[in-house]
Each structure stands twice: as structure tokens, then as C-alpha cells.
Design a binder for these strands. Structure first.
Lengths: 149, 149
DNA sequence: CAGCATCCATGACGATACTG
DNA sequence: CAGTATCGTCATGGATGCTG
């Protein structure tokens, strides 16, 4: 069984180190690295930003124009945490006005492959998902429909 | 430019069909199928549930015990929306008390491959990410550290 | 151009209690 | 066992205004 992580991110057993938790191999444990990745992937813009930078390096406002619906605040915030994670590089050219270019790191580009697979699945399958949703909703509207046993 | 989708999921142009939007090919458009997938993948439990059912079919409380930290409410809610999406099957055996078994659909299992790649990356790379975070935070604590140009 | 600071609404989520 | 119902919280993220 995996060792439960405290709310502050530490572990209740002295001498317990992160690598130990990693090697437990239980993806469903609260302290598993997958949870941390899911937290990052879970936010609204990280994946889109990574995919974009996977295609080409870009300046801040160019990204802002490219990704429909992203606010200045969220783009800035998400880029910063991706930079902190070592997935994105940030280069400042001190011209006037300044030029800031973002690019993906080698570690980040490793993740791109998996993300691209997900997106390809989405492009192929989302129409089918929409159909499934319609069928499900139709079933729920039927007279004798009950879910609870 | 991509055509904006209305809030009810329809499109403002008569005769416009979903497939047209799909083929626009702009992942960064607000109406792209990728956004819908990201919404699902974005929530806290969907991916873990899919991965678990990708391994084996399971009953409700077995899943609850297996996935550390998931509440009854969220497990129920997430399973229901995955079922609605056509990614998960729900079979009720009318014994006493009832037995409800969840399994992954064929469409769902197609997604598993991509998700598994992501998780493998996480297991390999999250320690490196943690190091990158530590370095980043250390840089920010340096005296002359400024971010804004 | 490339941000930061602040306010605020929404909704995701957890805890708890109850049911067939 | 397998859920539903309700309530409270807290974080996410959008809108706005300002800066070097």
C-alpha cells in the first residue's frame, strides 16, 4: 500500500523521500507523480500552450492572439508555472520595447508526443462522443427511465 | 478563421455541421474538439478512473477503495459523465443488494494509450520537474532577481 | 510590448446525511 | 451496496486598470 501524503505535501514517516513514493508504482495513490502531472494538465491552458510552443517558439502577444479566449493574466500565469516546471524556456531580448520569446524545453517536448496523441483522438472521436451524449440524454428523458437501482 | 460556437453547442451559420469545424484543424480555436476533451481530462478524477477501468472492470465501491481520496459524490458524478460520453459502460445486475459493474468501452480504450503515455512521462520526469521547480524558486529568491523587463 | 495587482463571480469539490 | 441531496468552501479564472 502506498504511503499517504500529508496536506502540506510531506510524508508522515521520517526518512521517507519522494523517490520512494515514485517507485511504489500505484498510480491511484494520492502521492503518485501522476497526480501532480494531472494537476498541471488539468488547468485550462497548459496543454494548449505546450502544444503551441511544440510547433514553434513564440512571443507573448503572438500566443495571446493565437490561443482563442485566453486572457493576459492566465497566459502569463500559466507560462510562468510551465517555466517553473522546466517545460518552457523564456528568453528576454532587451530591446526597446522588450521582446520576450517562449519556447519549449527538451523535457517539455517529450510530453508533446503524448499530448498530441490525445488531441488526435479528440479530433477523430469527439463527434462520436457528442452522439453518445445525445443518446444518453434521450434515454434519460424516456418515461420509465430510472438510474438508481 | 474558425467559426465561433454558440453557448448551446450549435453554430450560428445555417447548414454548418460539426464536421466542418473539426476539419478547420485549428486546435487553438475555442470551438475545437480538443477543448471539449481538455474539459473532461481537466477534471480531477476522469483520467484516473479511465486508467483504472482500462486495467480491469470494477464495481463502484471497489473503485472507491482503489482510487485514493475520491469521494463518493465525485466518483458517482464522474462515472456518470464518462458513461454519458460513451467512454464507460455501466451494467446493473439486479441481485439483492444490487451489483453495478463499470467497464471501459472500445472508444474509451482508444484513449487509454495516450493517457498511459502521459502517465509514463510523469513517472519518469516528475522528479526532474521537482528539481526544476526548486531551481526556479531559488533564482527568484536571489537579491537581483527581477522578472519584469 | 509584456506584464503585475486587484476585485469578484462561478463552479468544482468535499463533508455530511439520507435511501432503495 | 450503490447511490442521491444539500450545504459550505475554496480555488480558478475573467474583467479591469496600471506600469516600465
Amino acid at each position: 500500500m502506498a504511503i499517504p501524503m500529508m496536506q502540506d505535501g510531506t510524508f508522515p514517516i521520517p526518512g521517507f523521500v519522494y523517490e520512494t513514493a515514485c517507485r511504489q508504482g500505484d498510480v491511484y495513490a494520492a502521492d503518485c507523480p501522476t497526480r501532480q502531472l494531472l494537476d498541471r494538465v488539468g488547468d485550462k491552458w497548459s496543454v494548449l500552450i505546450l502544444l503551441l510552443l511544440g510547433e514553434e517558439s513564440m512571443r507573448f502577444n503572438a500566443m495571446r492572439r493565437r490561443i482563442a479566449g485566453v486572457s493576459q493574466k492566465m497566459l502569463s500565469q500559466t507560462l510562468r508555472s510551465l517555466e517553473r516546471d522546466g517545460l518552457v524556456d523564456r528568453v528576454v531580448t532587451p530591446t526597446m520595447p522588450v521582446e520576450v520569446t517562449y519556447s519549449i524545453t527538451s523535457m517539455g517536448s517529450e510530453l508533446i508526443d503524448a499530448l498530441t496523441m490525445m488531441m488526435r483522438w479528440a479530433e477523430q472521436r469527439m463527434p462520436a462522443v457528442a452522439q453518445a451524449q445525445a443518446r444518453f440524454d434521450a434515454r434519460c428523458d424516456e418515461p420509465g427511465a430510472v438510474r438508481r437501482p
